[in-house]
Amino acid sequence: MKMARTIAWSLVGLAVLAFGASWLWTDRRGGGPGDPAFAAAFELTDHSGMIRTQEDFAGRWMLVFFGFANCPDVCPTTLAEVAAVMDGLDEDAGRVQPLFISIDPERDTPTALAAFVPAFGADIVGLTGTPEQIARTADGFHIYYEKVEEAAAPGGYTMGHSSQLFLFGPEAGYVRSWPYGTLAEEILADLKEHLAS
């Protein structure tokens, strides 16, 4: 029981730290979703080893989300939801490019992503880069990520990260985002409206 209490108190400490960190982070930033100039911008390597920028997907809508391959719960769930959305688009699927951007550049090499992202189908492209490229990308998208120590995880850490799904238009301008946990059916209905407009 004593150990359980120590663990519980360290969880409280962790919670306070995490709360402080996320608060600091949002307060420092301008731009982002509220800014009319907010647009998708990146130069990263895809899971087949090709250098990609937002210009490669010009003329198509982009569904962009962030995660890491060692993530057993939230990321596969989002990948599965996005795959379900893409399936639901039928012939319109070709107008939308789903992009999974890694925030774990140390473990997520293009090869690692190649063994993970395509398994979900739906032509989702996995993107990664050097730690500097990922930091720059995260800055551009106004998203947050951090390493969290986790002794039992591969490499001794797991990641915390922004988990919303972003929609960018055919000129890469920001359209909207859905919080993690939004049902694929709801996203699909919203997305169809945008595609029809």
Binding site: A4, I7, A8, L11, L14, A18, F19, S22, W25, T26, D73, V74, Y144, E146, V148, A152, T158, M159, G160, H161, S162, S163, Q164, S177, P179, Y180, G181
Partner: peptide, 23 residues
């Protein structure tokens, strides 16, 4: 080799992370 109960949480800023859930 090892199994644990974890909890994923998403805060009001949309940041998701996970931690041991305890009992």
């Amino acid at each position: 080799a090892r199994a644990e109960i974890h909890r994923s949480v998403t805060d009001e800023k949309g940041v998701s992370s996970m931690m041991p859930a305890g009992e």
